[in-house]
Design a protein around this nucleic acid. Structure first.
Lengths: 356, 356
DNA sequence: CTGTTAGCGCATTCAT
DNA sequence: ATGAATGCGCTAACAG
């Protein structure tokens, strides 16, 4: 089926084979409201099939000013968190006939700018930004220029359409959970603070300490870089503190997993010696030993919603925004009973050091 | 800087402001070999800046037949393995001024077809395929049509330019390592066999058994689906076997991690009770407890090389292909000494059941 | 050195 | 019901 067609079958070729004008071909192609004779239509359809004709999206776009392409600017596609968000974007875009162009920034402001530049040059119909740069200069006005075709996941820029999760509240939720479980000396391992998400999670943690009248002990807030290694290192620092925490909240699961290694190296166990809780609820959480309590962020859904909003923006509609997404705490073993909680008799034995 | 320009500044606007013809503008834009007067050039450059003019890639492409876009067809971008490959593709493409359009197939043949269709319609200059569908019909001739602008990572189709790793040899390497460590009852947990990669890893395992004169014991080859859960389940099945294996090779690290949970649920430990070895060498391997021996696949480099080859193909060159990439075995604790190997006195106590 | 012109492939007036 | 002509923004022949 299909002639060994050269790649450049144009609408003109079809018209010739169907013995009609390109206008007519165009009409059956886009089933235009203009009436086309049954006879002719059939001939056209036939010609299209025979030639394996596919309309050239470029030419169409040049005319219509719409490329049916949206641009997504993300920190790093190989980061599982963003990979999931992007998948949500792609699937949703695909359903609506859009295609997605991705730019990685590695959280570098010049790469962000460059990414936007490239996407504009490629005439994308709209933009989705995620992985906000905290405190980045100059980006604001640039984005405002694109206000009518941009959606932000998070809060890169206040007055842009956006899709969000309440990271502050999520941290509070986590601390509340720990408090209910009887933990009071709570430490926090933050991610790098150039992301608004990480800024919010940290400030949520601080608010929670206040709210539950917990002490903020010096050294109990460590900053990592979202990586396994940085979690490992942060944990080492926490372990070297004179007064060790009872529970630790990590700004993402990766750092938590890194920290687990630091713990096992010292013969310490979770939740016996420490309670830990993570952020993101990656699949491994339910397969780790012990299973890990974590705050679930609806990554795929964020991408999906952002795309839906963007497309409706492109269509000239006025979608509701910002759209808030709920976060949930998934309780697992890692925040179970600690040794010092097993019985009243053991009270006071808390910090007598590890037991082999 | 920059007038609040409507988004439709064309080359004509620039020409008018610079009081010259669009040709001249075009010339300074692409620093054409045609000489342009210093005076004029300056005026043009100025106009461009004032109007914040950016050439329309669409129009350019329509003319040049080149979109500076390449299409990548992958199983699933949210799979960390492919996310890494894609990052290699994107970075390399970006360096060369190309942009990347990604299509996810979820390993469904109709989505593969659809993906190719979309990419052709968008006039990508070339294709990269990865995550080969094993035994897929009809795709061969379609791909051959695109032979001069397609690179395959793996072996989707034999006679296409490609970048490969020797997955068969990798399995043999793994088994060899286990044999050297003194293990002989070796089981294998495969991934889903619709991917050529998984087919090769399995056949490599079988070859290795022969090569080292090891027994292929019934039930010692399990098939999973690359997920944590399927690894967990496969391990459960292995544990229910009358004669349990001494060592297990997993076709990817995810399944191995899932299996670790099954082991710990039974109070079994690695490498004390079982040696395990994975594929892919994901970062977590060095942070897990115990650290995991794994076969490293140069994912990023594969994407990078495929892109380089594709671009040189597009340029009409004749790059060397197929290009083979080496695999390495990264030895860690998970293939260390087993209990039955600790001393000669313990010989014969091998399968006396677990010890708490 | 600079400008005029002719398309690239298509959708869309406006005629017929 | 059908077609001829126009132009989207740009580059490349081809004149001057």
């Amino acid at each position: 089926m299909g002639v060994p067609s050269r790649d450049s079958v144009t609408i003109l070729d079809v018209a010739r084979l169907a013995r009609c004008s390109i206008t007519t071909v165009s009409r059956v192609l886009n089933n235009s409201s203009h009436k086309v004779g049954e006879e002719t239509r059939k001939r056209v359809l036939d010609a299209i099939r025979q030639l394996d004709y596919r309309p050239n999206a470029l030419a169409k776009s040049l005319l219509s000013k719409r490329t049916m392409t949206i641009g997504a600017v993300v920190p790093d596609i190989s980061n599982p968190y963003y990979a999931e968000v992007v998948r949500g974007i792609q699937d949703t875009a695909d359903q609506e006939g859009y295609t997605v162009l991705i730019q990685n920034t590695d959280r570098l402001s010049d790469r962000l700018l460059r990414g936007i530049h490239i996407l504009r040059e490629k005439n994308v119909d709209g933009f989705i930004f995620t992985g906000g740069l905290h405190g980045m200069e100059g980006i604001g006005e640039l984005l405002c220029e694109l206000k009518d075709r941009t959606v932000v996941i998070g809060r890169l820029e206040e007055n842009l359409p956006s899709v969000r999760v309440d990271n502050e509240r999520a941290s509070i939720l986590a601390v509340e959970h720990l408090v209910q479980k009887g933990y009071r000396q709570i430490a926090y391992v933050s991610g790098a603070l150039h992301s608004t998400t990480m800024v919010d999670r940290l400030s949520g943690f601080r608010k929670a300490l206040k709210q539950f009248s917990l002490p903020e002990i010096p050294g109990y807030i460590q900053e990592g870089t979202q990586t396994l290694q940085s979690g490992y290192e942060a944990m080492k620092r926490l372990l070297s503190l004179p007064k060790k925490p009872e529970a630790i909240l990590f700004a993402n699961d990766q750092m938590l997993f890194g920290a687990m290694k630091a713990l096992s190296e010292e013969g310490l166990r979770v939740p016996r010696d420490f309670a830990v809780i993570g952020f993101d609820n990656v699949p491994l959480c339910s397969y780790f030993d012990p299973t890990i309590t974590s705050i679930e962020i609806p990554k795929y859904e964020l991408g999906q919603a952002a795309t839906r909003i963007l497309i409706s923006l492109i269509r000239g509609e006025s979608p509701q925004t910002p759209l808030w997404f709920p976060v949930r705490l998934i309780e697992r073993e890692s925040t179970g009973k600690a040794r010092f909680q097993t019985s009243d008799r053991e009270k006071g034995r808390r910090h007598h050091g590890k037991v082999l």
